[in-house]
């Protein structure tokens, strides 16, 4: 399947889910961004489709990926599904939190461990920390308990990344 065909398939799949949830007024938009497919659902009262901490949204995204991975003949595109801007808001909240934590680390000189996070969230943390002078970040532990530690620059004990 071409990227455009995959996008069409994923869009139809998500639209079908949204309809069957009874969200008659929601709209589902699909676009192709470089090598990834982005599906955005907008509408009122979509909380159930997001779920606690985005769990239902993550499930919808996982299934959307599975749908285009049906035939393993060609590499499948990356698929991002968002509902009511949840992912974008969540990343903004995570970045703001990391910036506050980084300031504390710089001010106190003490490292701080963050909660365990997915690889995607850890990347957001590393990217945010990278843009701030005087602090650095490393990942420690193993998934699903892998977490990021923020330390004053030059004090990292082990140089692991992501």
């Amino acid at each position: 399947m071409s990227l455009e065909q995959q996008a069409e398939t994923v869009g139809a799949f998500v639209r079908g889910v949204v309809e069957r949830f009874g969200y008659a007024d929601a709209s589902t938009a699909v676009r192709v961004e470089e090598d990834q497919i982005v599906v955005e659902v907008e509408g009122e009262n979509l909380g159930l489709l997001i779920g606690q901490r985005g769990r239902t949204l993550d499930a919808l995204q996982e299934l959307s990926r599975t749908v285009v991975q049906r035939r393993g003949d060609e590499p499948s595109a990356r698929v991002i599904v968002d509902v009511a801007g949840f992912r974008a808001k969540r990343i903004a909240a995570l970045e703001a939190f990391v910036r506050r934590t980084a300031e504390e680390v710089i001010a106190t000189g003490e490292p701080q461990e963050l909660e365990p996070m997915s690889a995607a969230d850890r990347k957001v943390v590393h990217d945010t920390v990278n843009a701030i002078a005087g602090v650095e970040s490393t990942s420690e532990g193993t998934d699903p308990g892998r977490y990021v530690v923020l330390r004053p620059a030059g004090t990292a004990r082990e140089a692991t990344s992501a």
Binding site: R90, A93, L114
Partner: peptide
Amino acid sequence: MSDLFESPSFPEPELEEDDEDGLEDEASEV
């Protein structure tokens, strides 16, 4: 994953529903 953060956790964006299980309350609305 973990709901037992000892370290400060970042605030999750607000959803329309806000309860712990995320299942019951909205049902009546929908």
